[in-house]
């Protein structure tokens, strides 16, 4: 296990020294995805705002003010779309990078960081939209917002680990690309992205409390919506992140040299 961890740290430190590579490639990726479009990456902002608007229009609970629900959905969709993109793109990461993996000696973590940075850049446009919605919905900018920022940073910390775990999953079990895709589509309805837990419905209560993604959402949302520090959500998210990192390091250390034979 020690050898595996050393191997993983070696891969990560080499990737960090090559940061110019993944920064350049991630920027190229974003540019390529929006090349020749009129709005360019601003489409990411338009898509996000359109989604929030649609959800607020369709799902706003009776008796709840539109502004408060807009803020609730805006943060929920921001975090959920980010996590969903990270996980769904990760399962096919090594297959997409096949020519690089079979033709260069770049450490695997370079591809992890390339996808991570790409997802962060895309989320940046959604964050701009989210802040605008929060301001327009009348959410007062206050000190608890710093806890939301800490929540975002915690999600950022967990991102490379999530990518690594899902990338290895996709390499070992190609079927998981479809399974994860389907689970994420269904998972949106079992995660409090746009619905609120009223603790009355047992299924809803179960989906709220036993779904780890609930806590990833709540560490960003509760400080802004309720003005409180969600200690329980932070604890669960920190533990989940550390657990994911432990799995990621073991996979990276143990199997990084096998990936080239699997893809």
């Amino acid at each position: 296990m020690i050898a595996a961890l050393n191997g993983a740290f070696d891969d990560i430190s080499r990737a960090m020294r090559l940061h110019r590579v993944w920064i350049a490639l991630a920027h190229e990726d974003i540019g390529d995805q929006h090349r020749r479009t009129t709005l360019g990456p601003l489409w990411l902002l338009v898509n996000y705002v359109a989604f929030v608007g649609t959800f607020v229009f369709v799902f706003q609970p009776a008796g709840r003010d539109a502004a408060g629900y807009s803020a609730y959905v805006a943060i929920g969709l921001l975090v959920w779309f980010y996590l969903m993109e990270v996980m769904s793109m990760s399962v096919s990461l090594f297959q997409r990078e096949e020519s690089f993996i079979e033709g260069t000696t770049l450490p695997l973590f370079v591809y992890v960081m390339r996808l991570g940075l790409q997802s962060v850049i895309r989320a940046g446009y959604a964050i701009a939209g989210c802040v605008a919605i929060l301001v327009f919905s009348g959410s007062p900018v206050a000190t608890p917002w710093l806890w939301s920022l800490a929540g975002l940073l915690l999600i950022l910390f967990a991102t490379p680990a999530l990518i690594t775990v899902f990338a290895f999953l996709g390499a070992f079990f190609p079927d998981s690309q479809f399974i994860v895709g389907n689970l994420l589509r269904v998972g949106m309805f079992f995660t409090p992205v746009f619905w609120m837990n009223n603790s009355q419905d047992p299924i809803q209560k179960y989906a709220y409390e036993w779904n780890p993604f609930t806590y990833f959402l709540e560490i960003v949302r509760l400080p802004i919506i309720n003005g409180e520090f969600p200690a329980h959500a932070f604890t669960v998210t920190i533990l989940a992140s550390l657990f994911t990192w432990a799995i990621a390091l073991l996979l990276l250390g143990r199997y990084r040299k096998q990936i080239v034979f699997l893809i």
């Binding site: 350049a24 490639l25 190229e28 390529d32 090349r35 690089f100 033709g103 260069t104």
Partner: peptide, 19 residues
């Protein structure tokens, strides 16, 4: 390897060098 279809040859030299 390391060449991107949409990027210019000059930009691709930079990417190839970084890789």
């Amino acid at each position: 390897i390391g060449f991107r279809r949409e990027a210019t040859g000059r930009r691709n030299i930079v990417l190839r060098g970084l890789i």
